[in-house]
Write a protein that binds this DNA or RNA. Structure first.
Length: 438
DNA sequence: TCTGGGGTCCTAGGACCC
DNA sequence: TCTGGGGTCCTAGGACCC
């Protein structure tokens, strides 16, 4: 345990929704829900105005619509999120070279490795205030919560307590008392299944957990989970901030609007996903030895099948043939809700020339995909997407249907703008570059 | 008309090797 | 006659995180 609080955790507030409100002035101060808009979609992020109505991340979208029908429902603009994320990560790297990005909107910083290290509480609070103000300035209005503590765990707990738009410092020695009144679920690694087991031991709060012995936790949860939970419950956490974690797997999966049964269509999906995976492998200059096929059945159960090659590959034909082979061995007659293709066992060099992986007697399945996956629908105007009209200028898709698309013409730099409706094939209306909504 | 997508880590059994 | 033990790799499933 560190002798001063030198780990910082930063969490952008309602990140995706906040980016949308920044870029769409008419949505500021209003409920905004970003997520999958199909009938099987879920919420990625809800703005604080939408959370008032009980809308939460991971909630099914139909439930979100029921709770907050007047919200703006948008599919994501991930290029825009990535751009803002890069700005934030660059800002954090000015504090210390040891920055570990957990996702687009979250990061740890090891302040002890940077120029601004200090053990004086006032200095740390001032540092956090500076970072938050500069972040808001550079991103054009986003806000973040910052926690500082003596470990990753405490820093993360602190930022959670600071939300939204605040700072929290947990001093050395305050750790156990800070976490004691929190629900046990607040400890990372305690999800629904673990919580269920803990509840049977009478555990609701971290303070309940603090009364159990390590042996009891190991007996209930297994060696690894039990030991980890015991340490965290007592505020102990020695995990280092790791700036560069190597990729261990790459995968693509799609849930369908309606369950698929046609084997030829399923093979076509797997083939297309294999090509996407291969493309990402190549972009990362990586090769893979293990190919995994994932299928989710209508009852939501998951089947996975994998096969490991003698040598690593990045070839779409090889990955596709393996994935299709694994798929053909499954009974999919009752329908399939999701198909995914993934690779693991990654290496930076290929090693496949010795083996006969080139021939493909079946040939890739060339099948017209009749059922679009939830994401990346190839045509249509996705709500929230950026567009440009030849005479009205830049705007965003408010909604579409019945051959029409409605656009609001405004940007981050304008006041709330006017709404106009066009035919979906109006030649003057174009998608703005660099955004496919996925 | 329940329940996304992209990941990480852990467990447990069997094969295989020495 | 009967029945070692450790280590590694592979596979399948599950919990969890954002």
């Amino acid at each position: 345990m560190r002798t001063s609080p030198s780990i910082l955790h930063l969490d952008l507030d309602a990140f995706f929704a906040a980016v949308e409100q920044r870029d769409k002035p008419s949505l500021r101060g209003k409920p905004v829900i970003v997520g999958g808009l199909g009938h099987r979609g879920v919420v990625s992020t809800a703005s604080y105005e939408a959370r008032v109505f009980g809308v939460r991340s991971a909630m099914p979208m139909h439930e979100a619509r029921r709770r907050c029908p007047h919200a703006a429902f948008l599919s994501g603009r991930f290029d825009a999120y990535r751009a803002s994320s890069r700005i934030v990560m660059a800002l954090l790297r000015e504090l210390s070279p040891l920055v570990e990005a957990l996702s687009l909107d979250e990061a740890f910083v090891d302040l002890a490795a940077g120029d601004r290290r200090s053990s004086v509480p006032d200095d740390l609070i001032e540092l956090a205030a500076e970072v938050r103000a500069e972040l808001t300035r550079r991103t054009g209005g986003l806000t973040a919560s910052v926690g500082i503590g003596s470990s990753k765990f405490m820093a993360k707990v602190a930022s959670e307590l600071a939300k939204p738009d605040g700072v929290r410092l947990v001093l050395v020695g305050e750790e156990v008392a800070t976490i004691a009144p929190l629900p046990a679920r607040a400890i990372p690694g305690v999800g629904p299944a673990t919580m269920e087991r803990l509840a049977r031991l009478g555990v609701q709060l971290v303070s309940d957990l603090q009364r159990l012995s390590q042996a009891e936790l190991v007996r209930e949860l297994g060696r690894s989970a039990g030991e980890n939970l015991f340490e965290l419950a007592h505020g102990r956490d020695e995990r280092p901030v790791e700036p560069e974690r190597e990729t261990k797997s790459i995968s693509v999966e799609d849930t369908f609007e309606h369950d698929l049964t046609d084997p030829a269509v399923l093979a076509g999906v797997a083939d297309r996903q294999a090509a996407q995976v291969a493309e990402r492998l190549a972009a990362a200059h990586l090769f893979a030895r293990t190919v995994t096929l994932k299928v989710r059945l209508p009852d939501f159960s998951v089947i996975s099948r994998s096969r490991t090659l003698m040598g690593a590959t990045d070839r779409p034909e090889v990955i596709g043939r393996l994935a299709r082979g694994l798929l053909e061995a499954l009974d999919t007659r009752a329908g399939v809700r999701l198909v995914g293709v993934g690779v693991s066992g990654l290496a930076s060099v290929a090693q496949e020339a010795l083996f006969d992986l080139d021939s493909d007697p079946d040939g890739p399945a060339v099948v017209e995909e009749r059922t679009a996956p939830l994401s990346r629908r190839p045509w249509g105007w996705m709500p929230g997407a950026d567009v440009v009209h030849d005479s009205h200028g830049p705007g965003w898709v408010w909604g579409s249907g019945l051959g029409r698309v409605t656009v609001r013409f405004e940007t981050a730099a304008t006041p709330p703008g006017p709404v106009r409706t066009f035919s979906v094939d109006d030649p003057a209306l174009h998608p703005a570059s660099g955004d496919e909504g996925s």
